[in-house]
Amino acid sequence: MDANGKITVAAEGRGVLPETVPGPAENVYLPKLAVLVRVQDEIAEVKTFYWHFVDEAEQGKFRAFRPGQFAQVSLFGVGEFPASLPPSPTEDELFFTVRNVGSCTAALHALKPGEVFGVRGPYGNGFPMEQYHGRNLVFVAGGIGLIPLRSCIVYAMAHRERYGRLQVFYGARTPSDLMYVRDLKAWEESAGLECHVTVDRPADGWKGNVGVVGSLLKKPGINVAVANSTAFVCGPPVMFRFAIKDLLQLGFAERDIVSTLERYMKCGVGKCGHCCIGVAYVCVDGPVFTYEQIKKLGEDI
């Protein structure tokens, strides 16, 4: 507190520059109203929800998000949950892809086009895409882990000239568990990107690869870009552990492997305390961390 009785807070860590909290600060917990436009089925229990803000100005502000950031989605009367942002800021439409897994996500799944819900954000650090200029990007995703990585892939494709080789390695349990089949098809046909898809258990008519996603990385004929590359990994815990091991074996440095973590969250702004892992608040310090950082958090992920 300064001599005038005002509460002053030094900027974090620096401790020298006091920064006076201005008048009534902006209310970070206030959601903005959004309208559901249409719903697209993805796989069992997973749907994509296209939406826009009621207020045009909010739409404009929000569209400046970075790949890898997330938003807090409000279903009034049920609660709020954090959701990754699968669209790239280079795309026109905003959408969430959400699995029906708890009370809030169930309420979103029950929503009909035209109905209103709340969104606040974008939050989190996101992937530093500008730091990767000139580098090869290797995306390794498992199951619905493709949701947050989709944003980076589409972003990199939209700025194709800024990056080296783009490779996508994607695995799911069965062919019917493959996310974003429309995008996968386009990526497989695209000349600017190498897309390899595999399934653990093939179904009738499946002509593609069989095996876990890590097996793709070692498959003869596939040449994973290792030098001057950044690998993006996202997927279920078991897949994550093995994919990291495979990438390290290929010669990736720990700081060149990035991932995005998920945790139970209530506020999204570093206050409620639920998402802490060791020294990090996933919502403000993450959700994007390098594997080097993950190892130093001080708590198991």
Binding site: V9, N27, V28, V269
Partner: peptide
């Protein structure tokens, strides 16, 4: 009150 999101 510190960091990037002061709590109003």
């Amino acid at each position: 009150l510190g960091r990037e999101f002061p709590d109003t």
